[in-house]
Design a protein around this nucleic acid. Structure first.
Lengths: 144, 144
DNA sequence: TTAAAGTATACAGAATTCGTATAGTTTAGG
DNA sequence: CCTAAACTATACGAATTCTGTATACTTTAA
């Protein structure tokens, strides 16, 4: 499963939001500039993240976005899944009806892949944006 | 990184080859029928596997293919990489020049992803075709 | 009431994937 | 040495997915 550019952007966007104070409304164009993600695309991604339950949005004049959950409660997995959908390193692991090979007994391979996938998913779930933000700060300190 | 259909086919093809006796020449059309992979596509995949060093090919009349390595020496990772190339769950993890974000300090994310990827690669490397073949036999026995 | 913000949907270009087609080359066997 | 069976090389095209943009809204604070 390749993590798409869009999901990568989403991660950057959330990470950028963690640098603002809690409940601060941040406009899409600010995020867009900070992350270098085109504005339109930023808006689209933020909509998905809003619908996905990670962001709160405020419409109208003086609107913007704010994190709905604490960075410690948002995982890499969650953000990636909101954008890219369920992770499947192989077509057959998602929609089982796609797999035409049951009769051929090759699905032993798919079960093996499922094990690998499960572990990867767990790994992604164990990374929170709190820990990412901390590491990020450290990098900034070192470089400045 | 999504394991492509082609790589999935390649895995099936190798697994099927393990069911023949060592050094037996098997023609592409036999493999194609066994695995339900279209003949032309089978040929293309087998060429890659040959160039990748897993298969031996015999040209001309009475030609065919045979495994060059023992099933215990062929891993899932190897086959997948021969077909799909280097595994990268994110664009930035492969060709570093692609990553435009060093200056933004978001690459902490990529480092985290690299950890996840490294583990996945190890997991795939730990699965040999010997073990797959054994599990496969077991499934066949149970069902027949 | 107006301007600044987000929303919804659809579209278009690019890249990738999947599979096929065309035109060879090699080799065993007669 | 000729032929048919097999593999090889390359290129092409259709389908799918990904990336990003455009068009036309709705909402809300001042």
């Amino acid at each position: 499963m390749k993590i798409t550019q869009e999901a990568d952007y989403a991660v950057r966007i959330i990470l950028n939001l963690t640098s603002f104070s809690e409940n601060e409304r941040v406009e899409a164009n600010v995020i867009s500039e900070n992350t270098r993600v085109p504005l339109r695309f930023t808006l689209k991604i933020m909509r998905k993240l809003t619908n996905g339950g990670i962001l709160k949005s405020f419409r109208g004049n003086n609107g913007g976005y704010a994190l709905l959950k604490k960075p410690s409660e948002i995982t890499l997995l969650e953000v990636i899944q909101i954008i890219d959908g369920q992770i499947n390193i192989n077509k057959c692991l998602g929609d089982k009806s796609v797999c035409s090979l049951n009769s051929l007994n090759y699905c032993v391979v798919h079960e093996e892949l499922r094990t690998v996938q499960t572990r990867m998913v767990q790994d992604l779930e164990n990374v929170t944006f709190e820990s990412l933000a901390n590491k990020n700060k450290f990098v900034v300190q070192k470089e400045s």
